[in-house]
Structures are given as C-alpha cells and as structure tokens.
C-alpha cells in the first residue's frame, strides 16, 4: 500500500529525515516511536502532503502512485488520512458542515454524487455512538474551545466518517485520559479491516496496549534505527530511549 524509499527531508536546509524506508501493507498496523525531535511529525506531514518541506531524496508511493507529485487534497482523495497532533480551531464552521463538505468533496473526486442527507445523518449517528460523543458536538464550531481530549476524539470521528485506506495517527494519545484513550482505541479497532492500514506515531507505548501493532519502528535522529514486534514497544517503555541511542552510537 505505502512504500517509502530512502526518504530525505529538510526544513530550511536543515536535514530532518535522513533516509527512511518503510513499507506498509493493507491490513497492517505499524507504530513509529521515538524521542522528541526525532522527526516523527515531519514524516506524517510529508506523507499527508504538507508544503514547506524540501524532499531532497527518495520516493513515496501509495498503491503504485507517486505521492510526491500530488497535492494534500489529492492524497486525501486516494484514501490517506492524518489525525493531527494539534487539530486546528476553525471558528464559524460547525463540525457537521465541515464533515459534510469533506465527505462530498471526496465523493466528487471519485465522480460520485453528494451523500444523501439521510444517509449522512445515519452514519454520523452511528459513529458518534461508537465514540461516545455527545450530539452537541455537531453544532459546535470545529475544534473551537474543545478540550485536548475532545479534539482528538473529533479527529477519530472524522477518520471514522471518511473511512480512509491509510490512517496516520500523529500523537493521538497525547492529552488523553485513560477513558478517552480506550474509546479512541475501540474506535480504531472497530474500523480496522483487512483492506485498510494504520500508522500510529507515538512517544509512549500506552496506546499500543489497546491497539496492538504488527510492527514497531524506532525513529531516532531522522532514521529508523530498529524494527521489531510489539515487544519492542514494551522494552522502550521499560528502558526508555537511552539504550537505543547508545546502540546507534556504537
């Protein structure tokens, strides 16, 4: 599904990613862990198509298409979704109108008619139930005045509505209490199918207790320095990142 080969990325001529290779197949859950400043968010932003990054080397392919040629919205239309670490507050645009616009723009890109209002409402109701969300969410301005936990839950709500092929969860667990974390995890596990894939970016292994990854990669100083099973996440939780740094130094 997603093939990243030898990806080098700079910001203002400072190299951030220094040769990342990663392959994600459908049905898989990958986790990327790493200390602060290792390049985790840069990687998720570059996959999703944020501008102001210089790709100096390497390729990203999604289902055989060269992603680097495509705009952020075109990547979204292919089925790539990024759950933001810091979702943007947009006063004046309600959650309902936002999700409606997003769904219909995606459908338009596929040559489909807008989703009938009845169908849309039914889907919204189902998803809100899944994520234990209150109806009042729908009429509130997008993320405006939302608590950290509400913002993250709203991201997962959008994910559940848009049903992407590849969902990237960028630090979705940060700022969540344990109950919210369980609800988010339940949402993700329910949405998981043999046809879609998840890339979970996190600093802690907490979320990985609830969403069990097939692969865990450790990102350090712009490179993937270690790949393993979910046990690697546990080892990191126990021992911290210092032993990885030492191993890399050797």
């Amino acid at each position: 599904m997603l093939k990243i080969k030898n990806l080098h990325v700079s910001v203002d001529d400072t190299p951030i990613l220094k040769g990342i290779s990663l392959e994600i197949k459908k049905g898989e859950i990958h986790a990327i862990m790493g200390p602060n400043g290792s390049g985790k968010s840069t990687l998720s932003n570059v996959i999703a198509g944020k501008e102001d990054y210089q790709i100096t080397q390497g390729t990203i392919e999604f289902e055989g298409k060269d992603l680097l040629e495509l705009s952020a919205e075109e990547r979204a239309h292919l089925g790539i979704f990024l759950s933001f670490q810091y979702p943007v507050e947009i006063p004046g645009v309600s959650v309902t109108n936002f999700i409606k616009t997003a769904i219909n723009e995606n459908r338009k890109a596929k040559g489909l008619e807008p989703m009938p209002a009845k169908e849309l409402l039914k889907l919204i109701r189902e998803r809100m139930e899944l994520l234990n969300m209150d109806k009042s969410f729908l009429s509130r301005s997008l993320n405006e005045g939302f608590s950290g936990g509400e913002k993250k839950r709203n991201e997962i709500f959008q994910l559940s509505m848009l049903q992407p092929k590849l969902a990237i969860l960028d630090e979705t667990d940060s700022g969540l209490d344990i109950d919210a974390l369980r609800i988010v995890a339940k949402g993700v596990n329910t949405l998981r199918t043999p046809e879609n894939a998840f890339l979970i970016i996190t600093h802690y292994q907490r979320l990985l207790e609830y969403i069990v990854p097939d692969f865990v990669h450790v990102l350090y100083n712009g490179k993937i320095v270690k790949t393993g099973s979910k046990d690697l996440a546990l080892a990191l939780e126990e021992k911290g990142y210092d032993w990885i740094k030492e191993e890399v130094a050797i």
């Binding site: 952020a72 919205e73 979204a76 933001f84 979702p87 947009i90 997003a102 959008q158 848009l162």
Partner: peptide, 19 residues
C-alpha cells in the same frame, strides 16, 4: 491566510480554493 488551517482542510480532501 492561516496555512496550518489550510493544510488541515485540504488533508480532509477539501480543494484549496474551497478551503
């Protein structure tokens, strides 16, 4: 224009001019 807000909307599939 707030470029972060633009990216957020575009990531959800909303074309740049509409965003």
């Amino acid at each position: 224009m707030d470029e972060n807000a633009m990216f957020y909307l575009r990531q959800r599939g909303i074309a740049a001019d509409k965003a």
